[in-house]
C-alpha cells in the first residue's frame, strides 16, 4: 500500500474540513520530541498522524465518535495506573499520559471506556472527565484558589437560604435542612445559621477559616473533585455531608433539589425535564464523591486476627 508523503508529515494546524478547530481545546504547547498531530484532538493522538490527516478530524469533529478500540486494560506505570486501549495509551486532551493514583479509580475509568457501545459518549464518562481535569488543570488554578472557590459557596449555600412562603415549603425546608446544618455545625464546631433575607446569612469569618483549613488537608486531586461536587449541589454543607459519609448521594441530591421536588409534588413530574435533571445531577454528584474518596484514601487492609474461641 502506498502511503503518500502528506500522511507522514502531519499538518501543523488542527483544522477540520469545515474550517473549525476540531475538538475545541486550545492546542497547548507540545514537547518537541513527540511526533504526531497537534495535541488538541484525543482521537488523532490515539490513532496517529495518518488517520488524523485522512479522515480523523472530519469524524472526530462530530459529537459522537465511533468506538475505535476493542480491549481496555490497566497497566501500572511510573506515576500510577494507566489505561490502555488496544495497546495504545490513553491520553488526556492536553496530551499527557492518563495516569491515576489509585487502582480502584483506574478500574472505574476502564469500565467507563469498556462500556461504550458503538459510539463514544463523553457525557456518560464523568470519572474520565474528572481525571482529565485533574491531570490537565485547564484553568491553571492552585490549591488556595480551589479552596477559596469552594468556600465562597458558603455565602450562597442552598441550605442557608430559606423561604417564608408558601408555609408548606418553609416547613419542609426546616424539617429537611435543619438536621444537616446542625450536623455540620456540631461536626466542625462552627456557626452557619440560615436566613430568609435576600442578602443571605451572615457567616462568621471563623467558619470560613475552619472550613478552609479542613479542605486544605485534601490533595489537589481531591480538591478538584470537591469543587466539582460543590458546584453541582450548589452547597458546601451538603458536600461536606457526602465527604464525611453522613449523607448518601441520593439524599444529598434530594436535599439540593428540595424546592423543585416540592413543586413536582404539587404540579406533577415531567420526565424529560425533572427526571432527566435528577439523574444527571445524581450521576455527576456520585462521580465527584467517588473521585474524592478514591483519591484521598490510603488503602490498608488490616486482617483481623482470629480470636481463639472458647
Amino acid at each position: 500500500m502506498v502511503v503518500s508523503q502528506s500522511f507522514r508529515s502531519p499538518p501543523t494546524s488542527c483544522l477540520s474540513g469545515s474550517g473549525r478547530n476540531c475538538a475545541g481545546w486550545p492546542p497547548p504547547s507540545r514537547p518537541p520530541d513527540r511526533q504526531g498531530p497537534p495535541a488538541a484532538c484525543l482521537t488523532c493522538h490515539l490513532r496517529g498522524p495518518r488517520w488524523h490527516a485522512e479522515v480523523g478530524h472530519l469524524r472526530a469533529a462530530g459529537p459522537e465518535r465511533k468506538r475505535f478500540y476493542q480491549n481496555v486494560s490497566i497497566a501500572q506505570g511510573e506515576g500510577g495506573f494507566e489505561i490502555n486501549l488496544d495497546h495504545r495509551k490513553l491520553r488526556t486532551p492536553g496530551a499527557k499520559i492518563f495516569t491515576v493514583p489509585s487502582e480502584a479509580l483506574a478500574v472505574a475509568v476502564a469500565t467507563e471506556w469498556d462500556s461504550q457501545q458503538d459510539t463514544i459518549r463523553p457525557y456518560t464518562m464523568h470519572l474520565t472527565t474528572l481525571c482529565n481535569t485533574a491531570l490537565d488543570n485547564p484553568t491553571q488554578r492552585d490549591k488556595d484558589q480551589l479552596i477559596r472557590a469552594a468556600v465562597k459557596f458558603l455565602d450562597t449555600d442552598t441550605i442557608c437560604y430559606r423561604v417564608e412562603e408558601p408555609e408548606a415549603l418553609a416547613e419542609l425546608q426546616r424539617r429537611e435542612w435543619d438536621p444537616v446544618a446542625e450536623w455540620a455545625e456540631r461536626r466542625y464546631s462552627v456557626e452557619i445559621g440560615s436566613s430568609t433575607s435576600i442578602l443571605g446569612p451572615s457567616i462568621p469569618a471563623r467558619t470560613r477559616e475552619v472550613l478552609a483549613s479542613h479542605l486544605a488537608s485534601y490533595s489537589m486531586w481531591a480538591l478538584q473533585g470537591i469543587e466539582f461536587v460543590v458546584t453541582q449541589l450548589k452547597s458546601i454543607v451538603l458536600t461536606l455531608g457526602l465527604l464525611d459519609r453522613h449523607l448518601t448521594v441520593e439524599q444529598a441530591v434530594l436535599l439540593s433539589r428540595l424546592e423543585e421536588e416540592y413543586q413536582i409534588q404539587k404540579w406533577g413530574s415531567i420526565e424529560w425535564a425533572h427526571d432527566y435533571e435528577r439523574q444527571e445531577l445524581r450521576a455527576r454528584t456520585a462521580a465527584g464523591t467517588l473521585f474524592v474518596h478514591l483519591c484521598s484514601e490510603s488503602t490498608t487492609v488490616k486482617h483481623k486476627l482470629l480470636q481463639a474461641s472458647g
Binding site: 472505574a108 448518601t248 448521594v249 439523574q279 444527571e280 450521576a283 456520585a286 467517588l290
Partner: peptide, 10 residues
Amino acid sequence: ATYLCLLRSI
C-alpha cells in the same frame, strides 16, 4: 453504594 448510584443514574 456511591458507585452503584453512579452506574444506575448514568
